[in-house]
């Protein structure tokens, strides 16, 4: 099984350790992982701004770059959903088959781990109280967990994986799947509302007694981290892959990446 690692641009540039952790977890299970370095961005910022013409070349590049892999794995529900749920209209007339192939083999990280690798347990303990932030696109586009609005029972993949980490205690905020307010360019264009939304997520997780907030999407966590660091709140953010990869050895080590 040859897996192409699809690393969101902001993770590549700002949170390399999240991608390294993803790579390490996959390799632990014997997966052969490659990072094709022609990749840049899936085009979501352009698409979500309404600039379909600017997003379309990104979609075409993704097909070229990943066509030779058996699977594509991405440590982001949002970027995965962009590929699997929002590329369709770029390939209405041309390249439909090639896109279908990409769509079917592209998986979000927790989805891939839960579906193909099915770990019994993870080795490295994480003796901390962890709040799980359910990132919206992973939840409501990819259905990686139970959506509070929907009356259909759905497996909670992230929760299942975290329960296999020794020593980890999962704590539950009262609003289990409210948006953090990142929303891509929304975070800047609607900064006031965005900050108010992030603030209420932080308070909810603090109330629940979380020491760490984790998520399948680093973008949500980047937004929360920005608020937490400004306010010097006793709450850290870590991507799910980082916890599963056994990071950090010492929780007080900065999550601000490898430098």
């Amino acid at each position: 099984m040859r897996v192409g690692l699809f690393v969101p641009c902001y993770i590549d540039q700002l949170y390399p350790d999240v991608a390294i952790s993803t790579l390490e977890v996959l390799e632990q299970f014997g997966v052969q992982v490659h990072f094709p370095n022609a990749q840049t961005c899936c085009g979501q910022p352009m698409a979500n701004t309404g600039c379909a013409d600017q997003a379309a070349p990104m979609a075409r590049r993704m097909i070229e770059i990943f066509h030779s892999f058996d699977y594509v794995v991405c440590p982001s529900g949002s970027c995965t959903a962009m590929v699997t749920h929002h590329y369709g209209h770029f390939f209405h007339t041309k390249g439909r088959d090639a896109y279908e192939k990409l769509r079917k083999k592209t998986y979000e990280f927790t989805q891939f781990v839960a579906e193909f690798l099915r770990p019994e347990r993870f080795d490295i303990p994480f003796p901390h109280r962890v709040g799980l932030h359910q990132s919206c696109h992973g939840l409501r586009e990819l259905r990686l967990g139970q959506c509070s609005e929907r009356m259909l029972e759905t497996r909670d993949l992230a929760g299942e994986l975290l329960s296999k980490v020794p020593g980890l205690t999962l704590v539950k905020p009262t609003r289990v799947d409210e948006c953090c307010g990142f929303g891509g360019t929304f975070a800047v264009a609607e900064a006031d509302v965005s900050v108010a939304m992030g603030q209420s997520r932080i308070e909810d997780h603090l109330q629940a007694g979380a020491e760490v907030v984790t998520a399948g999407d680093m973008s949500c966590l980047m937004h929360l981290q920005g608020l937490l660091e400004r306010q010097k709140q006793p709450l850290r953010v870590m991507h799910l892959a980082q916890i599963l990869a056994g990071r950090p050895k010492d929780i007080n080590v900065s999550t601000r990446g490898s430098s």
Binding site: V7, D12, Q13, Y15, P16, D17, F35, L227, S259
Partner: peptide, 14 residues
Amino acid sequence: IEREMPPAPRASFR
């Protein structure tokens, strides 16, 4: 305005 900027590691993942 109300958030710290994200970290700026020396090396990217690539």
